[in-house]
Each structure stands twice: as C-alpha cells, then as structure tokens.
C-alpha cells in the first residue's frame, strides 16, 4: 500500500504545483480553439494534478480537493454534456451533433464555435472522472493473501 510522503519539500512542491497544473488545464480546455489542446488534454491534465495529490499527500488529505466518490459521477456528467449537446439539435429540427441548430440565439458560425466548446468541456469532465476513478480503484484494491 502506498503511504503519504513525509518529506516537506515534496509536500510543498506538490501543493504549489497542483493548482498551477489545474490553471494550465483550464487554459488548455478553453483555449483549445486557438492553440494545441482541447478537452481530452485538459481533462487529462486535471486528472494528473489530482493523481499527483493522491500519490504525495495521501488519500485522506487529497480527498478534500477531490472526493473519490465524485469520480464516476463526473465521468457520467461529462458524457451527458457531450450526448446532450449532440441530442439537443434533434429537438429543434437538426441532425445529431449539428451545432447550428442549438437554440442559443447566435449566428450559425458561432453556434458551431459554442458547440465545440460544450463538447470539449464534456470530454474534459469524462476524462477527469474516468482517470481519477481508475486510480482510486487500483490503489484501493487489496491484494488477496495467498
């Protein structure tokens, strides 16, 4: 089993680095229209910052920044955002994922722009929830004694 680190240096470095990684992750998600990156990369960065805290600060202290029971709901909400953005245009007469039919009152070009952003946020949620959940399951898993 992995125990929390006792080193002050590692502890402090992680506590400084994790918020910075998270800010960069949000930048990557929301700036994905203009620079490399997007929902998948940003979500993975967010998950990496959470995993860093899990590894170094230990389970109990890192649960304050991201409770383990939230992981699977985050993933489900992400998929729901993505699928909802896809299915919404069906109601207003478009095809699946045809963003110009989203009823937001913008010009079609900016509707597509917004649709891309919504989808990226959904992917980010899904990737964040899934990766953290896999880590929690693996690290919680207790080996059978043979």
């Amino acid at each position: 089993m992995i125990r929390p680190q006792n080193s002050v240096i590692v502890d402090l470095a992680v506590r400084i680095m994790a918020p910075m990684i998270q800010i960069f992750a949000f930048y990557v998600i929301f700036h994905g229209h203009y620079s490399p990156g997007g929902g998948f990369q940003g979500g993975a960065l967010l998950a990496a910052s959470i995993l860093l805290q899990r590894v170094v600060l230990g389970r109990r202290r890192s649960a304050r920044s991201f409770p383990p029971r939230l992981a699977i709901p985050f993933g489900a909400v992400g998929i729901a955002i993505f699928a909802g953005t896809g299915l919404w245009p069906l109601v207003t007469g478009g095809n699946v994922l045809q963003y110009d039919y989203l009823p937001l009152g913008l010009s079609p070009v900016f509707l597509r722009n917004t649709g891309i952003l919504l989808v990226e946020i959904g992917i980010a949620f899904a990737v964040l929830g899934t990766l953290v959940s896999i880590y929690d399951d693996l690290s919680n898993f207790q080996r059978k004694e043979r």
Binding site: G32, H33, Y34, S35, P36, G38, G39, G75, A76, G78, I79, F82, A83, G86, V96, L97, Y99, V109, F110, R112, N113, G115, I116, V119, E120, G122, I123, A126, V127, G129, T130
Partner: peptide, 26 residues
Amino acid sequence: HTPNIVTVMIADYRSFDTLGEGIVVF
C-alpha cells in the same frame, strides 16, 4: 471560426467519432 483545425476536426466534423471515444473511455 476556430483557427485550430484539429479542434474543428475532432469536435465538429468528426464529433460522432469523438462521442464514441468518450463513451469508450468512460
């Protein structure tokens, strides 16, 4: 109106594939 072509590709033109990928990951 998105300068990053890759983003348009994966989230608009090929968004159905990306939805499938997201579901696979989840």
